[in-house]
Design a protein around this nucleic acid. Sequence first.
DNA 1: GCTCCTCGGGAGATCGATTTCCCACACTCT
DNA 2: AGAGTGTGGGAAATCGATCTCCCGAGGAGC
Lengths: 330, 330
Amino acid sequence: MTAPRLLDVAAAAGVSRATASRVLAGTPRNVDPELARRVEDAARELGYRTNHSARALRTGTTGTVGVVVPSLANPYFVQLADAIAQQVRAAGGQLVVSDAANSVEIEAEQIETLLGGRVDGLVVVPVSAAASGPAVRAAAKRAPLVLFDRWASGSGTVAVTLDNAAAMRLLLDHLDTLGRHRIALVAADQASSSGAERLAAFTEARGTGAATVLLPSFTTDAGRTAARRIAAQRNEIDAVVCGADVLAVGLVSTLQRSAVSVPGEIAVTGFDDTEILELLDPPITSIRHPLTAMAERTLTLLQAPARERAESVERFAPQLVVRASTDANA
Amino acid sequence: MTAPRLLDVAAAAGVSRATASRVLAGTPRNVDPELARRVEDAARELGYRTNHSARALRTGTTGTVGVVVPSLANPYFVQLADAIAQQVRAAGGQLVVSDAANSVEIEAEQIETLLGGRVDGLVVVPVSAAASGPAVRAAAKRAPLVLFDRWASGSGTVAVTLDNAAAMRLLLDHLDTLGRHRIALVAADQASSSGAERLAAFTEARGTGAATVLLPSFTTDAGRTAARRIAAQRNEIDAVVCGADVLAVGLVSTLQRSAVSVPGEIAVTGFDDTEILELLDPPITSIRHPLTAMAERTLTLLQAPARERAESVERFAPQLVVRASTDANA
DNA sequence: GCTCCTCGGGAGATCGATTTCCCACACTCT
DNA sequence: AGAGTGTGGGAAATCGATCTCCCGAGGAGC
C-alpha cells in the first residue's frame, strides 16, 4: 500500500497532473469548477497528501522556519521558541526547533543541517556573542537569518533584542525608590550579549566597586552558590539583582533556608519573567520582554529583502513587573 | 550566488555526479581513494551541502523524527520531548517538535502535516485517550508511530508509558508509612490516559468515598483553586496526592499563604518530578519517570518492523522521590 | 464568414541527489 | 594469446510535484 501520488489523483479525476496540481496547490489560474470538484473529491477519497520533499525540491521553498536555541532545558528559551512558534503558525508555516546544547560547535552543526534545504529562514538565539559570529555570518549569506534576544558580533545580520540597559536601569531605579541602595549583581554567562549588556549597565550605574558575583553557569544550582556568598555579606547588601530568573529562583530559596528574609533583609529581582516566578514564595520581581512584538518583528524581517537585515541591533522596551520579592505590598 | 550542487562538485573534481554521490553519501562501493580525496576537497572548497529535499525525494527517507506533544507551555512535556531529542540525536537524526495546543483537532493537523514526507517516524503524546485514537490510527498506517507517556484507545499502535497504577501505590504506601491515612486526590485532565489511570488507581485503593477534587484544567492556577477547597476541609484531610506537578506547585504555594503548614498539617505530593519541584520551599515529593529508558525503547520500536508495534501498552516502573513536602526530615 | 483573442488544460521539462544498469579496463588463469 | 573475472566509474532513469510552454475551442469584432 504505497502512498497515493498526484498522478493517482489526476487519473482518478480524469485530468492531467498539471490540472490536479493547479487545483490542490491553489495556483492563481482558473480551473473549471466541475473539474476542481472532481480533483478535490478524488484527493479526499484517496487520502492524498502532497509530498513535502517533492514540492520543496521543485519550488525551492519549504514553508518551514528553523529556530536554534542554546538549550531547551532552560524554560526561558522554551518561552522564546514558543513566541516564535505562535507567529509562524499564524502565518501558516511550520517550525523546527533545535537545541544547541550550550555549545558553539553544536550550534554551528545544527545551523548547517537546517540550511541543507530544510528551512526557508532561520531564527537563532546565539550561544555566544563572540564565538557564534562566524557560523551565523556564513549561514546568513545562504538564507534569511535573524538573531533573536541576543546578538553576535560579526554576524552580518540583524538582531531583535531587549533593551537590556534600559531594563537594568528600571530595576535599579525601582530598588532605589524603595530605599535599597546597597545593591549587588549576581550574573552568569557573560559570553552572551544580553549577559554582557546587563553587567555593563550595572557597572556603569553603580561603578566598578559595586558588589558583583559572577557565576560559571546559568542554572539554579549556580543561584544557590551565589546565595551562600550573598549571605556572607548580608550586612553590606540590601538588594540583589539577578541577571537571569533561574539564578533568582535558586538564590531566593537558598537565602530563605539560611534564614535571610526576602524582601525584609534583602530584596531580590530576576530578569526574564519566566512563569515560575509567580509561584514562588515570595513571587519574584522581574523584567518582562515584549515577546509577541519581538517575534512579530522577527518574522517580518525574515521575510523582508536581504538589505533590511543589514547587521544591526533592534532594542525593544522592557517592562518592570513588581512582585513581593522587592516590595512586600505588591 | 546560487548554492553549489552535486553537479558542481563533480565538475570541479573532474568526475561524474554518480561518483561524487558515492563518495559523499558513503555508498558501500569502492571508489579510488585519489578520486575520493578530490571530491571531498572540491566539496569543502565550494561549501557544498547536500540538498535535503532532493535526497529525501529520491531515497524516501528523511532522517527526521517528529514529536507531537499536547503543549510546550507545560514543562513536563518539554522534558519528554527533550528525552526523545537526546535519543534521536544520539542516533544521528534530526527532530521536529510540534505543539498540539491541547486540541485534538490541531493535533490531527500537526500529524497530517508531518506525515507529508517530512519525517520517517512519529512519536506522539496524545491529547486525549478517547478522541486522539482515530487520527493516530490513520497515521500509524502510513508511517511508524509510537505513543509516548500516554496511550489512546483504538490507536492501532504501541504505547510506551509509565506504570501509573504502581506509581499511585508508591505514593499512597509512602503516605501510609508516615501515618497519613486521610488522603485526598487532586486531579485534572481525565481525558488523558495517565490522568484516568491515576484516578482509577486512587479510587481502587481508597474506595469511591475518598475525597477527590477534580479540576477542569491542568495548570498551576487550577492548583490554587484546589487549595481553597482543600483548606476548607483541613480537619478531615492530612495528605494530598496531586495528579500532576503543576497542580502541586499551585496547591502548595496557596496553602502556605493560607497558613496551612506543609507538611506539618497536610503533606503534598506531585507526580512527574519536574525540575521546579526541587526549588520550592518545601521541595515536593514526586514520582520520577525512567525517561531515558522509555525514550530508548521508543526509538527502538520506531525502527522495528511494523509487527512489533501492534496495539499494546508497555509500562515502565516509576521511582518515588521523597522530599520535604511529605517528610520534613527528607 | 473570417480573423483575432482569450482562456482552460495537457505534454513535457525541471528541481538535485541517488541508484541501476552496463561498459571499459586490467589482471589472472589455462 | 585468448577467455574469464572483477572492479571502478559513467549514462541515464528515477523520486513526485510544479511550471513553462503551447494547443484547441469558443466567443467577439469587422
